[in-house]
Simulated scan of single mutants.
Amino acid sequence: MVRFSLYNITRKQRIFIAVIALAIAAIAIAAISVFCSHHTYPRELVVADSLCESNPDSAEALLHRMPDSVLAAKPDRMYYDLLRIKASNNLYEPQKDSAIFRIVDFFERYGDKERLCQAYYYQGKYYVQHNDAPQALKCFQEALDMSDDNTPLTFKSKIYSQSGSIFHDQDLFDDALKMYSASFVLDSVQKDTINMVNGLRDIAQTYKYKNKADSSEYYYKRAYDLSEKQGDKHLSQSVLLALASLYKNRGDIGKAHKILSDELADVDDYIESPTYCLAADIFKKEGNVDSVYYYCQKLLSVGTVYAKEYASGELYEYYTMKGDLRKALSYMHMYRVMSDSVRNINATQSVAKIHSLYNYNLREKENSILRESNRERLFIFIGVSLLLVL
């Protein structure tokens, strides 16, 4: 049997093998240096990044004017694409395409930990936008795992808060409380009063859904006290609206009415719909049908589809009581139309949740099969390598 040995080859062959080995080592070292070396991003991109949180409009304008010469290197181009998504997100605009997947893939291979952490977060936001809660949570967790002492606390707080909202929407209230509490702690460290108020309000709302009214009231009051110190009237009104709704639900109509008349007589457009719904409900419980009519009429012009369903039903009852059958039938027809719209929305959301859970389970099954296949290949490779060595 012929045995292979370095002693059986000529001196020239040994030198050739040594040169090849050195060349391979040099190429490997060069490749590692390229991917592990710290890349300095252009100043224009760094400035745009700093504006994304405080002034996203200016950040977006700066990115639109960015010259192509700044984006010659691929890492710079990917950073630019990430900032476009970041600025749009802070302007409450949805992601227009799936570019975030390309960005995540690049920074995973390139090794930029800070940019990858942000990319995971916005990938999670993409999944939220497409009603895929399990994948969104997975991305948010990857962003948290990737974060370190250099990660801004504001960013980490945002991840916890987003995760809490997803758990809340899935009726996983204990998990939601953990996330909201973690977010509140980080906001407290930074003394970010506005986010602290929002965090306390989220915690209060979660306790409300857990049917713990006393805990909910406690956190709403803490949120209101903080908002008053901040001097933000609109923030205070949004907290008081939630507190009045809590009082109404547990039967404290007097307390709810006092908040409504003292603090919510004049509200901004964005809380008109829930405020008028609350007012109509309070006056209905007090037997004031004319005030119910007044607020329901306002809801037909400014309310959401849910509010219009409620208002048209109440107006049907109002005109039935008045004996005006023509108007009663008109509002009955409107109520049916609104109810159909609400059912369609709820059905769409339910189907989206089922699909996202099914797709997640399917992906997990595929990943399990792939991991098992890779494990088998690894064992085969090790076995063949051992045989070659022997």
Rank of each mutant, 00 (worst) to 15 (best):
E286C: 02
S245Y: 09
D175Y: 07
G254I: 04
M179Y: 07
N288E: 12
Y294I: 05
L172C: 11
I271C: 06
F184D: 07
A265T: 12
V189R: 14
V267A: 04
K208V: 04
S188C: 04
L243C: 04
Y270L: 08
L235E: 15
D281V: 03
K212E: 13
V189M: 06
I194L: 15
D269S: 11
D175K: 14
D266C: 11
Y247L: 01
V289G: 00
D281P: 00
S273N: 08
D187C: 11
Y247A: 01
N288P: 08
Y218T: 10
F184M: 12
S181Q: 12
T193E: 09
S183W: 02
Y220V: 01
A244G: 09
K178L: 12
D187N: 14
D192N: 08
K178N: 12
L243G: 01
V267I: 02
A213Y: 14
S216W: 01
S261A: 07
D262L: 10
V239H: 00
V292W: 05
G199D: 04
I203W: 04
F283A: 00
N288K: 08
N211D: 15
A242K: 13
A280V: 01
H257A: 11
M179H: 13
N195F: 13
D281W: 00
K208M: 09
Y294L: 06
K208P: 06
Y294C: 03
N288D: 10
A280S: 14
Y293W: 06
A182H: 14
V185K: 11
V189P: 04
K178H: 11
V197T: 11
S273W: 02
Q205T: 15
I253D: 05
D174N: 14
K191A: 15
Q297N: 11
Y224G: 07
E217C: 02
E263M: 02
Y295G: 02
K248I: 05
Q230L: 15
A265S: 15
D262A: 04
A223S: 09
G199N: 12
Y209W: 10
L260Y: 11
V197Q: 00
D232S: 07
S227M: 09
N195G: 07
D202K: 14
Y180P: 02
N195L: 07
E263G: 07
K248R: 13
Y294H: 07
Y218H: 14
T193V: 09
R250G: 03
Y180W: 13
K255F: 03
V267N: 10
Y224A: 01
E217I: 05
K298V: 01
Y220M: 00
L177Q: 05
D174V: 08
Y180D: 04
N195M: 10
K178V: 14
Y219L: 01
D232Q: 00
G199A: 09
L235F: 00
Q237I: 01
T275P: 11
Y293M: 07
